[in-house]
């Protein structure tokens, strides 16, 4: 893989984790987008052959520590997320922005639901999750993130 692509991916993931951690005003807490999930989506759509299910292990572990969730929760959700993306990516790249936004909305909803179900399955301490808030904001952020990534990739002459 091109060294510029590696740097771009590294910077993108770092930025996603910074934004995931960014302190927000109380009123906006419900609407924190799932930045890392968006970054993973961009990575899988850009290079589906390189970024497979293996990506779920390191990033899921980091997300579990970041959110203080049970270790494995985000690994599970990322495995499902990447699995669905691998099935959908051919259609996704053909979709227009509006359709892509809809798919991202559903994918983030699925992730939130899996977190809830996963924790309910193995632990009695189940906290409710905000289903639609992060899904909505992630979907709204998606077109911009997608366009920005493609702009940077074209400037760096990365396919």
């Amino acid at each position: 893989m091109d060294i510029r692509a590696v740097i771009l991916i590294g910077c993108g993931l770092f930025l996603a984790f910074v934004l995931e951690h960014l302190p927000m005003p109380d009123i906006l807490l419900w609407l924190q987008p799932s930045w890392v999930l968006l970054a993973v989506t961009l990575m899988v759509l850009s290079a589906p052959a390189t970024f497979g299910l293996w990506l779920a292990l390191p990033l899921g572990l980091l997300l579990d520590v970041e959110h203080h969730s049970l270790l494995g929760t985000h690994i599970l959700t990322l495995v499902v997320h990447i699995g669905l993306l691998q099935l959908l990516y051919r259609r996704m790249v053909m979709f227009n922005f509006l359709q892509q936004t809809g798919v991202v909305f559903v994918l983030v909803m699925v992730q939130q639901l899996l977190i809830y179900w996963g924790v309910a399955l193995v632990s009695e301490n189940v906290a409710p999750v905000t289903l639609w808030g992060p899904a909505l904001t992630s979907a709204l952020v998606w077109p911009w993130a997608y366009a920005l990534t493609h702009f940077v990739m074209s400037r760096l002459h990365l396919s």
Partner: peptide, 19 residues
């Protein structure tokens, strides 16, 4: 594997060093 990890983490403190 993820579900096994979750079960281990919810019942035992063994994964604390990994965290």
């Amino acid at each position: 594997l993820a579900l096994a990890l979750m079960w281990l983490d919810s019942h035992f403190p063994w994964l604390q060093p990994a965290r």
